[in-house]
Write a protein that binds this DNA or RNA. Structure first.
Lengths: 176, 176
DNA sequence: TGACAGCTACTCAAGTTTGAGTACAAATTT
DNA sequence: AAATTTGTACTCAAACTTGAGTAGCTGTCA
């Protein structure tokens, strides 16, 4: 269910890399924006999957750079996990939904301030995403990676519209 | 950063409960849809926060039901975390973004099938959410909890629109 | 009445994530 | 040329999540 494994396997499809390179590649694709790709997770994933035979350890041990190569079993597992990610509608785990659940625990003034602040941040984030898309990045990342930005912007916009509507209702006293 | 703590503290604001009741209450609010609230997480969170003085252990030990009561420190921590959740725009961690990143690794036929399948699932999910909202749930959950459904539906719709557009482009050969 | 399902309440091991820390090399500044 | 910063490559403990497992209790239905 975790996405870390697919990401690591996917990055290694085109050739062996070591942990640091895996991380850099994922950053290039913008994966740090929508996944947990801290160093710890990557090194853990590499070690675990090597143990399971999905990867093959290439370089030297501790200290030097250890490179990992994907095995046939690893390729099969990648495909299996990729399909799963396409077909499974896993509800988005969003900390903002948590905030929403307890909107009645804030004073009206705090609530309005929080909503306005969030709306402003969302507008900024959407604008940044649109600028990034216009800049065409293309610094080695495949073209279709732009699509993740596009989808992300669309979802941020949906959240912004919801906030703008909810803000009106809070001001009218209809919420919470 | 984790949402589990806010959810547990928030549920305990109105009176002591034991682990199983905490889970049921969260389910009632639909939190199982957008957060990690497996039993293990809840019992772990309760034990940890009791140790830290955010909760007070009430009932007996193992075997019987152990009830937990929120302390003053716990209420303060709840407010702190709630504010953080309102103000922080944490990029949504979405497994579907992972699927998207590797869209070029599927055969065109598999890709189209996956996209069509997903679109169908999204339409069903949106309809279900809308029905749930129409049914007015109100089985003890506060009214504003409907808002989480509404926001969720809006985000699902954004994803559906993206897929419908991308599907056209895949068929025209513009993607990936 | 006894057997079987289903609910309540919790435990535990294995896996995963976090985030700070280490260590050394290359580049840059003073 | 010494000092400082920046970048590369990795480690580790502590925290968190998962999911299967356990164990008692309450119907219920033949």
């Amino acid at each position: 269910m975790s996405s870390t494994r697919v990401l690591i396997l996917g990055v290694l499809l085109d050739g062996p890399l070591h942990g640091y390179e895996v991380r850099r590649r994922l950053e290039l694709w913008g994966a740090d924006q929508w996944a947990h790709v801290a160093f710890g997770s990557i090194y853990h994933g590499l070690a675990k999957m090597a143990e399971e035979g999905l990867l093959r350890r290439l370089g030297e041990g501790t200290g030097g750079r250890t490179r990992y190569e994907i095995t046939e079993a690893g390729r099969a597992e990648f495909m299996r996990l990729l399909m799963k990610h396409w077909w499974e509608i896993r509800p988005i785990v969003d900390p903002f939904q948590v905030a929403l659940t307890f909107m009645d625990r804030l004073s009206p003034a705090d609530l309005v301030a929080a909503m306005e602040g969030r709306a402003a941040q969302l507008r900024a984030a959407i604008e940044m995403t649109e600028r990034a898309m216009a800049a065409k990045r293309a610094h080695g990342a495949p073209r279709h990676v732009d699509e993740t930005l596009k989808l992300n912007a669309a979802q941020l916009k949906a959240q912004l519209e919801w906030i703008e509507d909810a803000l009106r209702r809070v001001e009218k006293g209809e919420l919470p």
